[in-house]
Simulated scan of single mutants.
Amino acid sequence: MAAPVSVREDLLTRLVALSPPGDARLVSLVRRVCAQTLSLPPLPVEVDAGEPASDAEAVVAEFAEQFSTDVSAITDDQRSRLFKALGDNIFSVVVAMYLADLLPRVRAGLEALGVGEQYLGWTRGPIEWDHATEPSDSVFNDFLPAVGAMRALDPVTSELVRLRGAAQHNCRLCKSVRESRALDAGGSETLYDDIERFEESTQIDVRAKAALRYVDGLIWTPAHLDADVVAEVRARFSEAEAVELTLDVMRNASNKVAVSLKGDAPRVSEGTETYLLDADGQTVFS
């Protein structure tokens, strides 16, 4: 068996430090709104934007709030108004929302579990702001593959977690694909059909159920993670597995960017398509 892969300890700090030129106010705004919506501590900001100072900023704030609350409920009208407010900058700002929304959740999960302190350096010291790196490049070409390459968790649990997040965010693309390593390790449509009502399932084992309860907590109530759920994760998973499980929630939730912009069309019109999450954490379709 291959040794578990660890992400760089500064990877999350580098995401926190992203501050594209000209977007400091918007980054600050979405970090405040998302954290307030989640009742979690906000990410550090380079500029304190305070309340929206224009109609465009008000549109961004409204979109960010819905992004954090339930991305699947974003309306076409909200998308239209966001595009009108931001134009070609819309994708960059939505990626900023993703970071503002998910990094506080990851912090809440890791701190509740008492693991992964090495990844939370950004909570303890000053931030060296990065004005040069494109946030989408860091997210999609650095962070997502790094987490995808982690191998502490077994592939079936990882796939159950991914599909649970896909359903909660109603990502049509995510629901239309299946990971091949998980299928080879015992995953099946019969098993996956039980995810919706996993508590009643006789096929999903107690370990996977513990993971799914934790995933639901990070998605819906990250500021109020159930102590019994946290304790069960700590009892049933190693520290490396618990860290990977938490980071998987953030990796999988990158689908919120696509869902929010209605860019989550399924890969196939019927059935599912298989892909491989390879050793480099890249998604490879056959």
Results as ranks from 00 to 15, higher is better:
Arg164Asn: 07
Leu153Phe: 06
Ala253Gln: 08
Ser80Val: 05
Arg151Asn: 15
Gly263His: 09
Ala166Trp: 03
Val33Pro: 01
Phe143Cys: 03
Val30Thr: 11
Ser39Cys: 12
Met97Asn: 03
Arg124Tyr: 02
Ala149His: 06
Ala58Ser: 15
Arg124Met: 05
Ser19Cys: 15
Glu51Gly: 00
Asp76His: 11
Pro135Lys: 02
Ser138Tyr: 13
Trp129Val: 11
Ala231Cys: 05
Ala242Val: 02
Val139Asp: 05
Glu159Val: 04
Asp194Tyr: 09
Ala182Phe: 07
Trp129Met: 11
Phe140Glu: 07
Ala108Phe: 03
Glu128Cys: 10
Val30Asn: 01
Ala132Glu: 15
Tyr275Ile: 09
Leu247Gly: 06
Val115Gly: 04
Val161Asn: 03
Arg234Phe: 03
Val16Phe: 02
Glu134Val: 14
Val249Ile: 14
Ala96His: 09
Ala49Asn: 12
Gly50His: 06
Gly281Arg: 02
Ala61Phe: 05
Thr202Cys: 05
Val147Ile: 13
Gly217Leu: 03
Gly217Arg: 01
Ser176Met: 07
Glu241Pro: 00
Tyr119Thr: 02
Val33Lys: 00
Gly187Ile: 03
Thr123Asp: 05
Ile219His: 15
Ala108Gly: 08
Leu191Gln: 07
Arg207Lys: 15
Ala240Ser: 14
Val243Asp: 00
Ser54Trp: 10
Ala185Thr: 08
Thr246His: 00
Gln66Ile: 12
Ala112Arg: 13
Val206Met: 12
Ala185Phe: 10
Ala96Phe: 04
Trp129Lys: 08
Ser201Arg: 07
Pro21Asp: 09
Ala227Arg: 14
Arg236Asn: 10
